[in-house]
Structure formats: C-alpha cells, structure tokens
Computed example of a mutant assay.
Amino acid sequence: MQQGAVARYLGELQDNGGLKGTDIANITDVSKATVSRWRSGSMKPHPRNELILSDLYYIVGRLQEYYSADEIRTWLYARHPQLGGQRAIDLIHEGKSIDVLSVLDRLDGGAYL
C-alpha cells in the first residue's frame, strides 16, 4: 500500500464508514497522532496495520451497499449474534476479517443483519 493510498483509504474510511481517527487508532493499536502522520504521508503504517486498514477498507466498501456511513460505524461496533456475540471491529483487529466477510456474504444472500 503506497503512502498516497493510505491517505486515500483513511479519508474514505471516514467519509464512507463514519470512522474517526480515534477509531482507526484503536483498531490498529496506535496513537491518534500516528494516524494523523499516516494521513499526511509523513509516516507509513507497519505491514500488519496496512493489512488491517486494507481489510477494513474492503469491509466498509461492502457495507456501503446496505448502510449509511453512521450505520456502518454502528454495525462495526455492535455485537453480532452471527459473530458469536463479538464485534466486527475486534475481529478485524485480530486478523479475523474472514469471519466478518462470511457474515457479509450472508447479507448479500438476503439475510438481514
């Protein structure tokens, strides 16, 4: 992920997913100031955080088909029965985005979540 792409991803996560710098900092275990440095291009995320941002970006894009930005943020933070009572944001943080994507596949199939 190039530095320009990181800034674009962060902007789109905010605009399309309702996620704030604090949300991004929490999911990647960095400070809000670090997220600001990523956005400005003065610092590049570590590969693990690039993966988290990439997964989050993809998931937010999928959720856009169904929800507004504020609803996406709420969906990511809510506990879901389909995720065993876990929150999507925590699973993404733990590198378990595939579990979240399986729920989205069911949503695509017509199940309401």
Rank of each mutant, 00 (worst) to 15 (best):
M1N: 03
M1R: 06
Q2V: 00
Q2N: 07
G4Y: 03
V6L: 02
A7S: 12
R8E: 02
E12F: 04
Q14H: 04
D15F: 14
D15I: 10
N16E: 06
G17E: 07
G18V: 04
L19I: 06
K20D: 14
T22K: 14
T22A: 15
I24M: 10
I24H: 08
N26G: 15
T28F: 14
D29H: 14
D29S: 14
S31W: 06
S36W: 12
S36Y: 10
S36M: 13
W38C: 01
W38A: 02
R39D: 07
S40C: 06
S40M: 09
S42T: 14
S42Q: 15
S42I: 15
S42R: 15
M43C: 10
K44R: 13
P45W: 09
P45E: 08
P45N: 10
P47Y: 11
P47R: 14
N49W: 11
N49I: 12
E50S: 07
S54A: 05
D55H: 09
D55A: 07
D55N: 04
Y57N: 05
Y58F: 14
Y58W: 13
Y58G: 08
Y58T: 14
G61F: 02
R62D: 09
R62Y: 05
E65G: 04
E65H: 12
E65R: 07
Y66V: 00
Y67K: 05
S68P: 02
A69M: 11
A69H: 13
D70P: 04
R73T: 12
T74L: 13
T74Q: 15
T74A: 14
W75F: 10
W75S: 06
W75E: 10
L76V: 12
Y77G: 03
Y77D: 06
Y77W: 08
A78H: 10
R79A: 12
H80N: 05
H80R: 09
H80E: 01
Q82K: 09
R87Q: 14
A88L: 01
D90T: 02
L91E: 00
L91M: 06
I92T: 05
H93G: 13
E94I: 09
E94L: 13
G95F: 03
I98E: 11
D99C: 07
D99V: 15
L101E: 07
S102F: 06
V103G: 01
L104C: 01
D105S: 03
R106G: 00
L107E: 04
A111D: 02
Y112S: 08
L113E: 12
